[in-house]
């Protein structure tokens, strides 16, 4: 496929894979706005506990800090995966992707544990506006990470089948970009929701 792409790339001015990369960047802009809107609602509703539990009563920072650390590390390992790919090292690439996915999975399981615990302590999504906004914002980020996991596994299988070519290269670049993006979003979640919540 990649080899006879030239036929399509008239005068080389639109390369198919570069085109897809650009589309993904624009998609990330829309995702930024999506999260921006969720952050705005969180900030507006912050403190509206309707007499129920407040965030500072229930947040447990050690778990959250562990989540943060895990996700930051996974962002780093996804970067290592891209580096291996650029060296043409398929095994290294798949290996680092597996590490990234495992870290992502442990992030998700920690988050689920945190949610279950909160619900048991009397803070469910229907408890008050404060908690509705909390679960929606943090949950949307978690959903993004979960989708990323499934997608990463699909890419690993494709790498196994096709090796590194222009298509799989673009896919790895995109998932890594997506992963860094989620990392940045998490830094905002950590600051605005957790740090400012307990302070």
């Amino acid at each position: 496929m990649a080899d006879n792409r030239n036929a399509h790339a008239h005068e080389g001015h639109h390369d198919l894979e570069a085109l897809r990369m650009m589309g993904f960047w624009i998609f990330l802009i829309t995702d930024c706005i999506l999260f921006g809107t969720l952050f705005a609602t969180y900030v507006v509703l912050n403190g509206n506990t309707a007499g129920g539990p407040t965030v500072s009563e229930l947040f447990e920072m050690p778990g959250v800090i562990a989540e943060t650390f895990i996700l930051l590390t996974s962002s780093f390992t996804s970067g290592l995966a891209v580096l291996s790919m650029n060296k043409g090292n398929r095994k290294g690439l798949i290996g680092w992707l597996i590490v990234t996915a495992l870290l992502g999975a442990s992030f998700i399981s920690l988050e689920i544990t945190e949610f279950v615990k909160l619900v048991h302590e009397g803070a469910a999504i229907s408890t008050s506006a404060q908690w509705s906004a909390f679960y929606t914002l943090v949950g949307t980020h978690g959903l993004h990470v979960s989708v990323g996991l499934v997608w990463m596994i699909a890419i690993m299988i494709q790498l196994g089948r096709h090796g590194i070519n222009s298509v799989t290269r673009r896919k790895v670049n995109i998932i890594s970009l997506y992963w860094h993006f989620l990392d940045v979003v998490w830094i905002f979640v950590f600051t605005i929701v957790y740090l400012m919540g307990v302070m």
């Binding site: 952050f39 705005a40 507006v44 400012m196």
Partner: peptide, 17 residues
Amino acid sequence: DMNMDMGDGASMNHEGH
């Protein structure tokens, strides 16, 4: 202040509170 913080991020709302 609700209208305002819809327009622009966190700091405004905090003052409101």
